[in-house]
Simulated scan of single mutants.
Amino acid sequence: MIKSLLFFGLLGVFSIPAKSDLISVCIEDDRDLRVDCMVEPKPSRINSYEFSWSSGSKEAVINTNVSGAASESQFRDKSYVEELEPQGYRLTMTGYTDTLPHNTTYMCKISGNSATITIEKDLLLPCSAVIWKTSCIWAMGLLIFLQHIYY
C-alpha cells in the first residue's frame, strides 16, 4: 500500500507541467547565449516564432519570422534561430553574454503560444549544466521507480 502511494505521488510530481520547462536560457561553451523554446505549435498552422527579451519596461524583439514584425537592428547579425526536433526552436545570440542586463525576462512565441522566464545574469548556467540537471532529475525518478518495483 505504501509503495503504491509513493509511486503515484512520485508520478504526480513528474506529471505536473512546469512553465520553465518550456523555455530555457543558458551560456554555451563559446560564450554564446542560447534560448530553447519548446512550446508546442498549434496544429494546422504555419509555424511562426518570435524571441524577445525585456529588462525594466523596454521589450526588444531579438529574432522573428512573423510577417510584418522585425527584430531590433542591434540583433540582426548577431542572432540566428534553428528548428528543434520534434518541436520547438533554438535562438543563439553571439556577443551579448558580457553585456546582458542584470535581471532579464526572455520570451518566446511559437504560432501564438508563448513562454517566459526571468533570470538574473549571475545565475545563468552553462548549457551542459542545464542538460545534466534535467537528466539527473529523470534518472533519480527512474531509480526510485525501479526500487519500488523490485522491493
Rank of each mutant, 00 (worst) to 15 (best):
1 M>F: 15
1 M>W: 15
2 I>F: 15
3 K>M: 01
4 S>I: 05
5 L>Y: 07
5 L>K: 06
5 L>F: 05
6 L>H: 00
6 L>C: 02
8 F>N: 04
8 F>P: 01
11 L>I: 03
11 L>M: 07
13 V>P: 03
15 S>Q: 11
16 I>H: 13
17 P>Y: 10
17 P>S: 06
18 A>W: 09
19 K>S: 10
19 K>Q: 12
20 S>F: 05
20 S>W: 05
21 D>W: 00
22 L>Q: 02
22 L>R: 01
22 L>P: 00
23 I>S: 00
24 S>W: 01
25 V>W: 08
25 V>S: 13
25 V>N: 15
25 V>G: 13
30 D>V: 03
31 R>N: 11
31 R>C: 02
32 D>L: 10
32 D>I: 08
33 L>M: 13
34 R>N: 09
34 R>H: 08
34 R>T: 12
35 V>T: 06
35 V>G: 04
37 C>M: 07
39 V>G: 07
40 E>S: 14
40 E>C: 12
40 E>P: 12
41 P>L: 15
43 P>M: 12
44 S>K: 14
44 S>N: 14
44 S>R: 14
45 R>A: 14
45 R>Y: 14
46 I>R: 09
46 I>L: 08
47 N>P: 05
48 S>W: 10
53 W>A: 11
56 G>E: 00
57 S>Y: 10
57 S>F: 09
59 E>M: 11
61 V>I: 15
62 I>S: 02
64 T>N: 02
66 V>Y: 10
66 V>C: 05
66 V>S: 02
68 G>K: 08
69 A>E: 14
70 A>S: 08
71 S>H: 08
73 S>Y: 02
73 S>T: 08
74 Q>S: 11
74 Q>V: 07
76 R>T: 13
77 D>I: 12
77 D>Y: 12
78 K>A: 09
79 S>A: 15
80 Y>S: 12
82 E>K: 15
83 E>W: 09
84 L>Y: 10
85 E>R: 13
88 G>D: 03
89 Y>V: 03
90 R>D: 10
90 R>Q: 15
90 R>W: 08
91 L>V: 04
91 L>F: 05
92 T>Q: 04
94 T>W: 08
95 G>Y: 06
95 G>S: 08
95 G>Q: 07
96 Y>K: 01
96 Y>N: 01
97 T>V: 00
98 D>L: 00
98 D>P: 00
101 P>R: 03
105 T>P: 03
105 T>L: 06
105 T>S: 08
107 M>Y: 09
107 M>P: 04
108 C>I: 07
108 C>E: 07
109 K>H: 10
110 I>Y: 06
113 N>F: 02
114 S>L: 04
115 A>L: 03
117 I>K: 07
118 T>D: 00
118 T>K: 02
119 I>V: 15
121 K>N: 05
121 K>R: 15
123 L>V: 11
123 L>F: 10
124 L>Y: 06
125 L>I: 02
125 L>M: 06
125 L>N: 04
126 P>E: 14
126 P>N: 14
127 C>T: 06
128 S>L: 09
130 V>M: 07
131 I>S: 15
132 W>E: 15
133 K>P: 00
133 K>G: 03
134 T>K: 12
134 T>G: 09
135 S>H: 14
136 C>Q: 13
136 C>P: 04
136 C>T: 11
138 W>R: 14
140 M>C: 11
140 M>L: 13
141 G>A: 02
142 L>M: 06
144 I>L: 11
144 I>S: 09
145 F>N: 00
146 L>N: 00
149 I>N: 05
151 Y>I: 12
